[in-house]
Amino acid sequence: EEWMVEKALMVRTGLGARQIESYRQGAWIEGVHFKRVSPSGESTLRGTTWYNYPEINKFIR
């Protein structure tokens, strides 16, 4: 699984929702560690946020 939603990321990493938000707003790079995608497939600020687990795992190492 490369891309996953927040709940799956929480299960895989043990991070809480606030921790994920903090990383997203600070250290993680949009387009690398996470992306927002609307149902139409376009990038957007209001779409579902998807997280790239392999890239996040590399960051944590």
Rank of each mutant, 00 (worst) to 15 (best):
K35D: 04
N52K: 02
G14Y: 03
P39W: 09
A8S: 08
R36T: 15
G47R: 07
M4A: 02
E42G: 11
F59E: 03
P54N: 11
F34M: 03
E55T: 05
K58W: 06
S43N: 11
E2L: 08
R12M: 11
T48P: 06
S40Q: 11
V37E: 13
V5A: 09
K35Q: 07
G26C: 13
G14I: 02
G41W: 06
M4V: 13
V11K: 13
Y23K: 02
H33K: 00
L45A: 13
G47I: 11
W50C: 13
G31Q: 04
A17K: 14
R46Q: 15
S22F: 15
G14E: 04
V5F: 07
I20F: 03
Q25W: 06
V32C: 05
E2Q: 08
M4T: 03
L9E: 00
I29A: 05
L9F: 05
G16R: 10
Q19S: 06
G16Y: 06
Y53R: 02
M4Q: 03
M10S: 07
T48R: 07
K7I: 09
Q19G: 03
T13Y: 02
K7A: 14
V11Q: 14
F34P: 00
A27Y: 11
W3K: 00
T44R: 08
I20R: 01
A8V: 12
R36Y: 15
K58I: 08
Y51L: 01
G47A: 13
G16M: 10
S22N: 13
S40W: 09
Q19K: 05
P54Q: 10
R18L: 12
N52W: 03
E1F: 08
S22A: 14
T49K: 03
E42R: 07
G16A: 11
T13K: 02
L9R: 01
Y23P: 00
M4F: 05
N52H: 06
Y51G: 00
E30H: 05
P39V: 14
S43D: 13
H33T: 00
M10L: 05
A8L: 12
G14V: 02
T44C: 09
T49I: 15
K35W: 05
Y23G: 03
K35E: 04
N57L: 15
E2H: 08
G16D: 15
S22V: 13
G31V: 03
S38R: 08
S38L: 11
N57Y: 13
E2W: 09
Q25T: 12
E21C: 08
G47C: 10
W50K: 04
A27M: 09
Q25D: 12
S40F: 11
G31K: 03
G14T: 03
Y51A: 00
S22I: 14
E55N: 06
I60C: 07
L9A: 02
L15I: 04
T13I: 05
R12L: 14
I29N: 04
A17E: 08
E21H: 09
R12W: 07
V11R: 12
Q19V: 06
L45T: 13
M10H: 04
R24F: 05
L9V: 04
S40A: 11
V11Y: 10
N57V: 15
V37S: 10
F34L: 02
V37D: 12
P54S: 11
V11S: 10
R24E: 09
G31D: 06
W50L: 15
G26S: 14
G41M: 08
V32N: 03
A17P: 12
S22E: 15
A27Q: 11
Q19M: 08
E1C: 11
E1W: 09
R36A: 08
H33C: 02
T48I: 13
A8E: 15
I56E: 01
K7C: 13
K58D: 08
S38K: 09
R24Y: 04
Y53L: 13
W50F: 12
G26K: 10
G16I: 09
R12S: 06
R18W: 13
Y23I: 03
V32A: 03
G47S: 12
H33R: 00
I56K: 00
E30Q: 05
N57F: 13
V32H: 05
T44K: 11
K7E: 15
R61H: 13
N52F: 06
R36M: 14
K7Y: 12
W3N: 00
E6I: 14
Y51N: 00
E6P: 04
R46M: 15
A8R: 07
S38T: 11
V5M: 15
E55K: 05
G31A: 03
K35P: 01
E1L: 07
N57Q: 15
W3I: 01
A27W: 09
G41R: 07
N52T: 01
T44I: 09
V11T: 09
W50R: 04
F59H: 05
G26Q: 10
M10N: 03
W3Y: 02
E55R: 04
P39L: 13
V37N: 07
S40M: 11
Y23T: 01
P54M: 09
G14D: 04
A27R: 07
P54D: 11
L45I: 12
I56W: 02
Q25Y: 07
I29Q: 08
L15V: 03
Y51T: 00
N52M: 02
I60R: 03
T13M: 06
Q25G: 07
A27S: 10
T48D: 12
I60G: 03
R36W: 15
T49S: 04
S22R: 12
L9D: 01
V5D: 15
E2M: 08
E21Y: 08
G41Y: 07
M4N: 01
E30D: 07
P54H: 11
T49G: 03
T44E: 14
A8N: 09
R12A: 14
Y53V: 06
A8M: 13
G41P: 10
I60W: 05
L45D: 15
N52E: 02
K35R: 09
S38F: 14
G16C: 14
W3T: 00
K35H: 04
A27N: 07
E42K: 08
V32I: 12
G16T: 15
T13C: 05
Q19H: 05
I20V: 06
A17W: 10
A17C: 07
T44D: 14
R36D: 12
A8T: 12
L15E: 01
K7P: 06
S40P: 14
T48N: 07
E2S: 07
W3G: 01
R18Y: 09
V5S: 15
G41T: 09
I60D: 03
E42I: 07
E30T: 03
K58P: 02
S40G: 12
K58E: 10
E30L: 06
S22K: 13
W50H: 06
R18T: 11
V32F: 07
M10W: 04
W28G: 00
E30C: 04
W28S: 00
Q19L: 07
R12V: 10
G14S: 05
V37P: 06
E42C: 08
N52Q: 02
N57E: 15
I56D: 01
I20S: 00
E6Q: 08
R46C: 13
N52A: 02
F59S: 04
G31F: 05
F34S: 01
R61T: 13
V5W: 06
V11I: 14
I60M: 13
E42F: 06
Y51M: 00
K7L: 10
T44P: 12
E6K: 13
G26T: 14
N57T: 14
G47T: 13
P39T: 11
W28V: 00
P54L: 10
R46F: 14
P54E: 12
Q25M: 13
V11G: 08
P54Y: 13
F59G: 03
L15Y: 03
A17Y: 08
A17L: 09
V32D: 02
R46V: 14
T44F: 09
Y53D: 02
K58S: 08
R46K: 13
F34C: 02
Y23R: 02
Q19R: 05
L9H: 00
V37I: 12
F59M: 07
I20W: 02
A17D: 05
K7M: 09
Y51S: 01
I56G: 00
I20E: 01
L9S: 01
E42Y: 06
P39Y: 10
M4S: 01
A8F: 07
T49M: 14
V32P: 02
W3M: 01
G31P: 02
R18D: 15
W3R: 01
T48S: 07
E42V: 09
A8C: 12
S38M: 11
E55F: 03
R24W: 03
T49L: 15
N57C: 15
E30K: 04
W28Q: 00
E1D: 12
G41I: 08
N52L: 02
R18E: 14
Y51E: 00
W50D: 02
E21W: 09
I29T: 10
Q25L: 13
E30G: 03
S38C: 10
E30W: 04
M4D: 01
R61K: 14
T49N: 06
E1A: 10
E6R: 09
